Computed example of a mutant assay.
Amino acid sequence: MNPVEQVVSNFQQLVAQVPEVVQPLVAMLAGAIPFVDGEVAAMIGVLGGIHPVLAAVAAATGNFVSVLVVVAVTSRTRSAVVGRRRVPVGVGGGPGTSANPDGDGLGDLASSTPVSKGRRRLNRWLVRFGVPGASVLGPLAIPGQFTAAILVGSGTPRRWVLLWQAVSIVLWTSVGTVSAWAALAVMAGAS
């Protein structure tokens, strides 16, 4: 069993063991975890016995809150880095010198970092479909938290990222909830 399957299994067991009032909080907590996100958290909730609408709302809320935190941290970090770059200081030189002709002080370090398959796919979607497309299609490649961090880190306005991440979370959480509910309905009808 891989680590994600183990996390899902543990959350399903937890939902079944806690009081009914606490069950949506478990779905909310599961939604905040990357790779679980809102869609899987909603499935966990529905399969754990939570009403589908409550499971979807809790999972989407947990997912959005975690994306909100990631966007806030990434935005502050980007502001600090961009603010520092305005005063160019190179390695071994004084103020006004830089390590490479571009003047960004990064040298060849940034270009030698390998890019993951999911990041390459997200970048293609971003170029082709813009922020809305990258946000909605992003969960097919990488978790929403990572997508939001990449978008904000590249300079996309926070509000635009949060708007489209919210749309994506609602869409994918609804798909996950309806899928789990339909699977349970089919299984109940078959018995």
Results as ranks from 00 to 15, higher is better:
residue 46 V to T: 04
residue 46 V to Y: 04
residue 47 L to V: 15
residue 48 G to T: 04
residue 49 G to V: 10
residue 50 I to V: 08
residue 50 I to G: 10
residue 51 H to T: 11
residue 52 P to E: 07
residue 53 V to N: 07
residue 53 V to R: 12
residue 53 V to S: 13
residue 53 V to I: 15
residue 54 L to K: 14
residue 54 L to N: 05
residue 54 L to F: 08
residue 55 A to V: 10
residue 55 A to C: 12
residue 57 V to F: 11
residue 57 V to I: 15
residue 58 A to G: 06
residue 58 A to C: 07
residue 60 A to I: 15
residue 60 A to H: 07
residue 61 T to V: 12
residue 61 T to E: 00
residue 62 G to S: 03
residue 63 N to A: 11
residue 64 F to K: 03
residue 65 V to C: 06
residue 65 V to R: 00
residue 66 S to W: 06
residue 67 V to A: 13
residue 67 V to T: 05
residue 67 V to W: 09
residue 68 L to K: 00
residue 68 L to S: 13
residue 68 L to P: 02
residue 69 V to W: 03
residue 70 V to F: 04
residue 71 V to W: 05
residue 71 V to N: 00
residue 72 A to K: 03
residue 74 T to N: 02
residue 74 T to E: 06
residue 76 R to D: 05
residue 76 R to Q: 12
residue 77 T to M: 00
residue 78 R to L: 14
residue 78 R to T: 15
residue 79 S to T: 13
residue 79 S to C: 07
residue 79 S to F: 14
residue 79 S to W: 12
residue 82 V to N: 05
residue 82 V to E: 10
residue 83 G to E: 01
residue 84 R to S: 00
residue 84 R to K: 14
residue 85 R to K: 13
residue 86 R to G: 14
residue 86 R to Y: 13
residue 87 V to F: 10
residue 87 V to R: 13
residue 89 V to R: 03
residue 89 V to A: 02
residue 89 V to K: 02
residue 90 G to C: 03
residue 92 G to D: 03
residue 93 G to K: 02
residue 95 P to G: 08
residue 95 P to M: 11
residue 96 G to R: 08
residue 96 G to M: 07
residue 96 G to A: 11
residue 97 T to L: 03
residue 98 S to A: 07
residue 98 S to F: 06
residue 98 S to H: 06
residue 100 N to E: 15
residue 100 N to I: 04
residue 101 P to D: 05
residue 102 D to K: 10
residue 102 D to Q: 15
residue 103 G to K: 10
residue 105 G to F: 14
residue 105 G to Y: 13
residue 106 L to G: 08
residue 107 G to N: 13
residue 108 D to V: 08
residue 108 D to Q: 01
residue 108 D to A: 14
residue 109 L to E: 06
residue 109 L to G: 05
residue 111 S to G: 04
residue 113 T to A: 13
residue 114 P to T: 11
residue 114 P to D: 09
residue 115 V to L: 07
residue 115 V to R: 15
residue 116 S to R: 14
residue 117 K to V: 06
residue 122 L to C: 08
residue 123 N to Q: 07
residue 124 R to I: 08
residue 124 R to M: 09
residue 126 L to S: 09
residue 127 V to W: 04
residue 128 R to H: 02
residue 128 R to E: 13
residue 128 R to C: 01
residue 129 F to Y: 15
residue 130 G to Q: 04
residue 131 V to L: 02
residue 131 V to R: 02
residue 132 P to D: 03
residue 133 G to P: 06
residue 134 A to V: 01
residue 134 A to I: 00
residue 134 A to H: 00
residue 135 S to L: 01
residue 136 V to N: 00
residue 137 L to E: 00
residue 137 L to I: 07
residue 138 G to I: 05
residue 139 P to T: 04
residue 140 L to Q: 02
residue 140 L to E: 04
residue 140 L to H: 02
residue 141 A to H: 05
residue 142 I to W: 11
residue 142 I to K: 08
residue 143 P to L: 09
residue 144 G to K: 00
residue 150 I to D: 00
residue 150 I to G: 01
residue 150 I to T: 06
residue 151 L to E: 03
residue 151 L to T: 06
residue 153 G to Y: 02
residue 153 G to A: 12
residue 155 G to I: 01
residue 156 T to A: 14
residue 156 T to V: 15
residue 158 R to G: 08
residue 159 R to E: 11
residue 159 R to W: 11
residue 160 W to D: 04
residue 160 W to L: 11
residue 161 V to K: 00
residue 161 V to F: 07
residue 163 L to G: 11
residue 166 A to G: 08
residue 166 A to W: 12
residue 166 A to Q: 00
residue 167 V to I: 15
